[in-house]
């Protein structure tokens, strides 16, 4: 790759990094924060489940699946934007 794409590389990486940080924040919330308060969440109910139980048994898992799908889609957009995607 030529030298003059270095500006594009910096911009591409900065967007990639920001996406990673956003993903990590969402990941942190649904991995740890939600489960730290499971007892309080059990006071509410969702689909007939106590919410704390639901999040640990299904909710967080489903959010992880969607999170990866969305962040992959966004990352592909970023790669395309700078012409760094694979043909």
């Amino acid at each position: 790759m030529s030298q003059d794409d270095s500006a594009a590389r910096v911009a591409h990486w900065s967007k990639t990094r920001n996406l990673m940080i956003i993903v990590m924040i969402i990941w942190f919330i649904f991995s740890f924060v939600v489960h730290w308060f499971a007892k309080d969440l059990n006071g509410s109910s969702f689909l007939g489940f106590p919410l704390g139980n639901y999040m640990a048994a299904q909710g967080s898992l489903a959010i992880f699946v969607v999170l990866i799908a969305v962040s992959n889609w966004r990352q592909n957009q970023i790669d395309k934007e700078f012409g760094f995607d694979e043909e």
Partner: peptide
């Protein structure tokens, strides 16, 4: 019981790290 669901959360959430990092 509930404490064990930490495995379920941990063994799925790890893939977010794999995909992003």
């Amino acid at each position: 019981g509930h404490g064990y669901l930490a495995f379920v959360v941990g063994w799925t959430g790890g893939y977010v790290l794999v995909a992003s990092l």
